[in-house]
Computed example of a mutant assay.
Amino acid sequence: MKKFITLLLMTAIVLSTLVGCSTNEKEKSTISSDKGDKIKVVVSFNPLREFAMAVGKDKIQVVTMVPEGVEPHDFEPKVKDLLELTEAKVFVYNGLGMENWVDKSLSSIDNKNLNVVDASKGSNLIKNTSEDVIKEHGQYDPHIWLSLQEAKVEAKNIKDALVKVDEKNKDYYEKNYEEFSKSLDSLYTEYKSKLGSLQNKSFVTGHAAFAYLCRDFGLNQQSVEGVFAEGEPTAAKLKELVEYAKNNNVKTIFVEELASPKVSETLANEVNAKVQKIYTIESKEDSKTYMDAMRENLDNIYNSLK
């Protein structure tokens, strides 16, 4: 009797295990089916997610590695981030020293089918002038996504990668890219005319992230911090900014979410100017899309220079 009961228990366990395995396989199959139709794209940070979604729309599943509110060059990937890369078809990063963790991350994973996209490829780059910045971060200013013209280049690089891994949907990606490109051109044309009509061309920001935007529209930026928003300005630099703001009748000091606002606020108080937010778009701020944030940036800059 004892042997019989033991046999029954073992049989029940085996049956239960088989049913459980069957159920799990069905669940995995369903999950795989839901995501299987979409190309998995991992991007380093927010603007590249925006460009990827503009081109790929419902044909892709996008995972962003750098969390909201974290500077891309301060980010350190965790195991879960590397696992995302092992399952991806496409990985997009900005390059130009913005993500110094990329090479190490790619060398630590095993994904021979991963298409790696340096989104800055083919961009018209602006050289850094500080020897210290060049030594630590490289020769070029990385903030190319803040140019409507260079955003088209980044979006095209993403489009080309999607076509490569999903050629059957080439027309779909091409169409989406053309639509996005036209929307960028439309915003550029609108503000090229508006900003071009102004005599005052200079504005003050928290850190020097807007050189490409300035090149698009013939503007000049003066900044509290450098290209990579590292450290605080010297007393001499702050004095220089105060004199500049007074001499040029600067009434607005722009500040960014991921840069410290304290010095900018001090500067604004010194010259009786207001502090106003400007979007670097490194994170998704105030639930704004790339186009929304860029339009607001340009509108606020325009109004500050009138």
Score class of each variant (00 low, 15 high):
M1G: 10
K2W: 10
K3P: 05
I5Y: 14
T6Q: 08
L7A: 15
T11S: 12
A12M: 06
V14E: 04
L15G: 14
L18W: 06
L18P: 04
L18D: 04
V19W: 03
S22C: 12
T23W: 15
K26W: 13
E27D: 12
E27A: 13
S33L: 13
K40E: 08
V41P: 00
V42N: 03
P47M: 08
R49Q: 14
E50D: 15
A52R: 05
A52H: 11
I60T: 01
V63L: 12
G69P: 11
V70K: 06
H73D: 13
D74R: 08
P77L: 05
L82V: 05
L85Y: 12
L85E: 08
E87H: 11
K89G: 08
V92N: 00
G95A: 05
L96C: 10
E99Y: 14
W101E: 10
K104V: 14
S105F: 07
S108A: 14
V116S: 08
V117P: 00
A119Y: 04
A119W: 06
S120Q: 02
S120T: 02
L125A: 11
I126C: 05
I126L: 15
T129W: 09
T129G: 13
S130T: 11
I134N: 09
K135C: 15
K135I: 15
E136P: 14
E136Y: 15
H137A: 15
D141P: 15
P142I: 00
W145C: 02
S147V: 05
L148S: 02
E150V: 06
E150D: 06
K152Q: 09
K152T: 01
K156S: 06
D160C: 01
D160E: 07
D160F: 00
L162Y: 02
K164T: 06
N169Q: 03
K175F: 00
N176R: 03
N176P: 02
E178F: 02
E179M: 06
F180P: 03
F180R: 11
D185N: 08
S186A: 07
Y188K: 04
K192F: 03
K192R: 05
S193A: 14
K194Y: 07
G196F: 00
N200A: 06
A209R: 06
A211G: 15
R215E: 03
D216F: 00
F217C: 01
N220L: 03
Q221A: 09
E232L: 09
T234G: 14
T234L: 10
L238G: 04
E243H: 04
Y244D: 03
Y244C: 07
A245D: 13
A245I: 12
N248Y: 04
N248G: 04
N249E: 13
K251N: 13
I253A: 02
F254H: 12
V255P: 05
E257R: 12
E257D: 09
E257K: 12
A259M: 13
V263L: 09
A268E: 06
A268S: 11
Q276K: 13
I278K: 05
I281Q: 08
E282F: 11
E285L: 08
K288S: 04
D292P: 01
R295H: 02
L298Y: 00
L298P: 00
N300T: 12
N300D: 10
Y302S: 07
N303K: 15
S304V: 08
